[in-house]
Design a protein around this nucleic acid. Structure first.
Length: 671
RNA sequence: GCCGGCGUGGCGCAAUCCGGCAGCGCAGCCGACUUGUAAUCGGCAGGUUCCCGGUUCGAAUCCGGGCGUCGGCUCCA
């Protein structure tokens, strides 16, 4: 038998010809789920390397390994569905972040009971240790095999035709390899199930250590609204039971942090149905936080050279005809109300046209520029009923909106200082991990190429200067503007889109904006759109989820709650509370007819940063005792020291109240 | 907008499958207790069972429509 020489994880290795990757790794006692060949193609462990191949191991507990595992689990699920619902047609079933799904065309949507049955059937298939065997077929063979599977035929037709294949289909067909492969699942000789698939797969269903079916949903075939709606089942699979358990705990953690739940629990805001879907009211405690956010934001903007403006909530159709919103964005707008004999007034979906009118209210000189206009502007957008989601996707919300008008020479400098400003403000709110996305010119665009290139270059300069890691999303810009979107990671590693900076190449034209230049010619200004929080509602929701409701002391709606040990200690604490209140601290004294332990429990539940407790011992020595919401406590602190400590943490915007951790930003923990 | 789930005092839930007196806990109010770091005890009050219509002797429960909400899809110039 001939031997071949391969490179295995960087080292030369001689093996007998025809030895499978799985056998080689077994000899070397290496555990893997699949291998990568020559840097790109991924292969099953049953594949045999040829002379000269560079082989790399893909461990199960890696992003790629888990994707393969999840993909295989999706196959097992589809097999189970086929067993239980023989009429089901299968569409596609790719791995996704944290799991997988598979879409089916079935007569009736799956019920929770169906899910349980599918799951038990899957356990049987896993117990049967079916092998995943790859075989290459011709297009005609494939078409014959899947003659009764219209969605597979559709995938085949596209793969064979060389048409663009979406990422979710890429897992199903094999256009990149110029060959079409089918995976047969078999226990012994009997093939139990076959699916069109490029692979790779785990060697056997027994190599699926832990999985769970999560939920059913519906999805359009190929994600297009006019296509048939399919029934989707989401599941997850992991390299071990422990990893699955950790994932389920992560989901529980996310649920406990849900801002909609915290909003109700902490009495921050609500969505009364009488007002309408997606329209929030802020309760006093939520209002207190919002006021602090706004006060802080105003102060920062004032220092950064912004001027404050106020504009109405409505405008005639004329304004939105000029801005182009009625042409491009009408579906996202609330419908108009007619008055004055047929004049149509629209609630505003954006603030920019109003700010432009302020710019245009008189002739502008280059000496006026850059002109930075800022407003907490409330806008209304008609979001389709299925997409409304708490404060993060509302129909009415307030943007911390600014528009900067500047000369072409000022553009790069403005963007650079602007992005630094944005990052600084977000850091003050305790957000520390940023990622930017530079969205560039799409295929369909307005304006001149040179302008686009100048704007994109300026944005790139700004992101690089800010030191924020970024990716270029080529062609993802709006048709009128390139932009930079800033994303943050929260305390449990989730990514949220926040701030947006756009260079508008359209509005200045539409409104025929001008300024008188130093050489006495009329020039068109550049215009930058910028929302820092995005919307106050959304930003507030992100903060709530990031902090799991335990807002830093400077933001907390109630900063201090005083708890008397017995009711006779109430007056003493009322005196301390009065001093704190006079210093601007939001403080309450719990004089309810409850035991002290119950009051602590309540304050703890309300996530109040400081509990100030006093009894006979404290009163004798003119002291007070701390309980922090972390559970730590400190007794007999002189009143002046206690007040100083509280004020210090508030003024310096430290993240948490407890002495040990004060000042340290919360560590992000990835997932 | 589309598919599916859900809607019962302020909140969390039970009774819904298989129609027959709407119940529990928390919160609220009243009273007692006066306590040193996460729930004191007793009492009282609170519901058009989301809305409209239908079936039925009888509807929280079954059927239709609407609204809201949850999970997805689509959308987020």
């Amino acid at each position: 038998m001939q031997s071949v020489t391969i490179t295995l994880d960087g080292r030369p290795r001689v093996v007998a010809e025809g030895t499978t990757a799985g056998e080689i790794l077994a000899q070397d006692a290496i555990r893997a789920v699949a291998v990568r060949v020559n840097g790109t193609a991924k292969r099953d462990l049953t594949w045999s390397p040829a002379d000269g191949d560079v082989v790399e191991v893909i461990p199960l507990a890696s992003d790629e390994g888990r994707a393969i595992l999840r993909h295989s689990t999706a196959h097992v699920m589809a097999q189970a569905v086929t067993d239980l619902f023989p009429a089901a047609k299968w569409a596609s079933g790719p791995p996704i972040e944290h799991g997988f799904y598979y879409d089916f065309d079935v007569e009736h949507p799956f019920t929770p009971e169906d899910l349980q049955r599918i799951e038990s059937r899957m356990r049987q298939i896993i117990a049967a240790k079916q092998s995943f065997a790859r075989r290459v077929v011709s297009p005609d063979e494939a078409a014959a095999l899947f003659a009764d599977q219209p969605y597979k035929l559709d995938i085949l037709a596209r793969a064979v035709g060389g048409a663009a294949v979406t990422s979710e289909e890429a897992a199903d067909a094999a256009p990149g390899d110029d060959e079409i492969s089918v995976y047969d699942n078999a226990a012994g000789e009997q093939v139990a199930w076959s699916d069109l698939c490029r692979g790779p797969h785990v060697p056997s269903t027994a190599d699926i250590p832990a999985f769970a079916l999560m939920r059913t949903a519906a999805a359009y075939w190929r994600g297009e609204e006019h296509n048939p709606m399919l029934q989707r089942i989401y599941g997850t699979a992991w390299e071990s039971r422990a990893a699955l358990k950790a994932h389920l705990q992560f989901l529980a953690e996310a649920e406990a942090r849900d801002h909609r739940r915290l909003g109700a629990e902490l009495d921050l805001f609500s969505f009364p149905p009488e007002i309408g879907s997606g329209l929030a009211v802020w309760h006093p405690k939520g209002g207190a936080v919002r006021r602090v956010m706004e006060d802080y934001s105003r102060r920062m903007h004032e220092h950064a050279g912004y001027e404050f403006v106020v504009t109405p909530h409505l405008a005639k159709s004329t304004l939105f005809e000029i801005s182009g919103h009625l042409q491009w964005y009408a579906e996202g707008m609330y419908p108009p109300m007619e008055l004055d004999g047929g004049v149509r007034y629209y609630p505003k979906p954006m603030n920019c046209p109003f700010h432009i009118l302020i710019y245009r209210s008189r002739g502008r000189s280059y000496r006026d520029l850059p002109l930075r206009l800022f407003e907490f502007g409330t806008v209304y957008r008609y979001e389709r009923s299925g997409v409304v989601h708490g404060l993060t996707r509302a129909r009415g919300f307030t943007q911390d909106d600014a528009h900067i008008f500047c000369t072409p020479e000022q553009l790069a400098g403005e963007l650079t200082s602007l992005l630094a400003f944005v990052v600084q403000v977000l850091r003050d709110f305790g957000l520390t991990e940023f990622e930017a996305e530079l969205a560039t010119r799409p295929e369909k665009f307005v304006g001149e190429l040179a302008q686009w290139e100048a704007a994109e270059a300026a944005l790139r300069t700004a992101v690089e200067a800010a030191g924020v890691p970024y990716v270029v999303a080529a062609g993802e810009g709006a048709f009128y503007a390139p932009k930079v979107d800033l994303h943050v990671r929260d305390a449990i590693g989730r990514r949220w889109q926040l701030s947006t900076l756009q260079v508008d190449l359209q509005m200045p034209e539409r409104f025929d904006m001008e300024y008188q230049s130093g050489d006495n010619t009329r020039q068109r200004p550049y215009m930058i759109h910028r929302a820092l929080f995005g919307s106050e509602e959304r930003f507030f929701a992100i903060l709530l989820e990031h902090y799991a409701g335990a807002l830093p002391p400077w933001l907390a709606p109630v900063q201090v709650r005083c708890i008397p040990i017995a009711s006779r200690h109430g007056d003493y604490l009322r005196g301390i509370a009065a001093r704190l209140r006079a210093l601007g601290v939001r403080v309450e004294v719990d004089t309810s007819d409850e035991r002290m332990q119950k009051k602590i429990r309540t304050a703890q539940r309300d996530k109040v940063p400081y509990m100030l407790i006093a009894g006979d011992q404290d009163i004798e020595t003119g002291a007070v005792s701390f309980r922090y919401r972390t559970g730590e406590e400190r007794r007999g602190v002189p009143i002046d020291d206690a007040i100083a400590e509280i004020l210090h943490v508030i003024e310096t915007r430290h993240i948490d109240a407890a002495p040990a951790s004060s000042g340290s930003a919360e560590e992000g923990r990835g997932h």
